[in-house]
């Protein structure tokens, strides 16, 4: 091994070694750059067995008269990072009609620019990848449109890499793609983004862990109680059954609601493919705030 200064510094090793294969990082690190720990990460079979078990337990609970769950449980051990990051105490119910959370933040034309909704036009050149249009409506729990509210998205590039310094997946960055966008919903609750289809990428929850392609969404409703951050998936992705984050939604019907549908009429000839994804926010709002939103 050719020696520079002392020849043993981590920088030297990094320069000489091939990119580290993500086989021995700590299981909970999730590509965060946290220090490597010795224990071997669990195999996909172990995670898949845990996923199957939690689903069976949920189905049994529903058969026994338990409630159907629209959201993932915060404690979901197959997603290793959830283990130390969920409360063990039950949530405290607040049913105060004067609670501040029954109202929420508002946004307007000062908060977005027209370019924000087109993630392919943020740089001098065109990003690589499959150009897509993603559109749908944001509705409240009664099916009414959420008007004039902020929708934010972020995603990996076509190669499956985020424009984030802590993402060290050895896939290329795209100088013409950052992957963040914003828009306001219109009077019908519609949003629309032009972007490229993100790639799948590896993460370090377990050995050979791969996230299905997804776009992160952040949504505001008529009240702070309706706040939602979620992920949109693409139909037919073979990685669905292996992914503990998607499978954390243990209810089969609820999990389906995370998947956009391909709509041929939303595709533009010689330009882009179209996907539709409607989003429904739940949570109470102050009735006096309903008009004018």
């Amino acid at each position: 091994m050719p020696s520079t200064s002392d020849g043993t510094g981590p920088a030297d090793r990094r320069a000489e070694a091939p990119p580290p294969r993500p086989a021995s990082p700590p299981p909970a690190a999730e590509r965060t750059g946290e220090a490597a720990a010795p224990p071997a990460p669990p195999a996909q079979e172990v995670i898949s067995a845990e996923i199957a078990q939690t689903r069976q337990e949920y189905l049994k609970a529903v058969e026994g008269g338990g409630p159907r769950l629209d959201h993932p449980p915060r404690a979901y051990p197959p997603y290793r990072s959830s283990i130390l990051r969920h409360p063990r105490q039950p949530l405290v119910a607040v049913r105060d009609p004067d609670a501040v959370e029954l109202t929420g933040p508002v946004f307007g034309v000062t908060d977005v620019t027209e370019l924000d909704a087109d993630l392919t036009r943020r740089h001098a050149g065109e990003p690589l990848g499959e150009r897509i249009r993603v559109t749908g409506r944001v509705l409240d729990g009664d099916g009414r449109p959420v008007r004039g509210q902020l929708v934010e998205i972020w995603q990996a590039n076509a190669a499956g890499r985020y424009a984030h310094q802590r993402d060290q997946h050895p896939a290329p960055l795209d100088p013409n793609f950052t992957g963040a966008g914003r828009c306001l919903t219109d009077d019908e609750g519609r949003y629309a983004f032009t972007t490229i289809r993100p790639g799948a990428y590896p993460w370090r929850n377990h050995d050979n862990a791969w996230r299905p392609a997804h776009i992160h969404f952040s949504l505001f409703g008529a009240a702070f109680t309706q706040r939602l951050v979620t992920q949109m998936y693409f139909p037919g992705d073979p990685l669905f059954p292996f992914d503990p984050i998607m499978q954390s939604v243990t209810d089969d019907a609820a999990r389906e609601r995370l998947v956009a549908r391909y709509e041929h009429d939303l595709s533009t000839p010689e330009w882009s493919l179209g996907y539709r994804w409607d989003i429904v926010l739940s949570g109470p709002a102050a009735t006096w705030m309903e008009e004018g939103r």
Binding site: E30, R31, T32, D70, H71, P72, Y79, S81, S82, L139, G141, D142, G143, W154, A156, Y162, H164, R166, D167, H216, S218, L228, V229, T230, Q231, I245, M246, S248, V249, A253, A254, R255, R257, L258, D278, I279, V280, L281, S282
Partner: peptide
């Protein structure tokens, strides 16, 4: 009444 869209983690990025 349309059922709510499930939450997913904000993730690291």
């Amino acid at each position: 009444r349309p059922p709510p869209t499930p939450s997913q983690t904000v993730g690291p990025f």
